[in-house]
Computed example of a mutant assay.
Amino acid sequence: MTDTCRALLLRMAAYLDRARPDGLMWAEGRRIVAGQVAAEHYGIRADLVADAEAELLDHAPEVAAGITRHEYAEQLRTAAA
């Protein structure tokens, strides 16, 4: 895992803790947040965004049914460690 991936996993976690942390996390939300964080980091460099999103999805845990966004954020922090 690259240092950039670790940093972006932590950004994903921070975002989930800020935005409705008690809400449920969904599998599709994992992909959306990964893409959002990658795009914020790399801007218009679509090639780098796609690569970063793919690496994030490789290292971000799958979303378990019934998990909150805050609980998933904790899993992301563990994955980044």
Rank of each mutant, 00 (worst) to 15 (best):
A60P: 02
H59F: 15
G66N: 07
P61L: 11
I32W: 13
L8F: 08
Y15N: 03
A80T: 09
A64T: 14
D17Q: 10
D58M: 01
Q36P: 00
E40A: 13
L76Y: 06
H59E: 15
A39T: 15
I32R: 15
L57M: 13
A81Q: 12
V33L: 09
C5S: 09
I67E: 09
V49G: 07
A80N: 02
A80P: 02
A52K: 04
D22Q: 13
D58A: 13
H70G: 00
R6V: 15
A54G: 04
A38H: 04
Q75D: 04
E28A: 13
W26F: 13
E40K: 11
A81F: 10
C5Y: 01
D47R: 12
R69W: 08
D58H: 09
A14W: 00
A60K: 01
A65F: 00
Y72V: 01
V63K: 11
A13E: 03
G66H: 10
A81Y: 14
H70Y: 07
P21K: 06
A39N: 04
L56K: 08
E28P: 00
E71C: 05
C5K: 06
M25T: 08
L16R: 06
Y72I: 00
I44E: 15
E28F: 06
Q75P: 05
A13W: 00
T4S: 07
E55Q: 14
Y42F: 12
R77E: 13
L56F: 02
A14G: 10
A81D: 13
I44V: 11
G35H: 04
V37N: 04
A73S: 06
L48F: 10
Q75R: 14
E53M: 09
G66I: 02
I32E: 15
D51Y: 05
A50E: 11
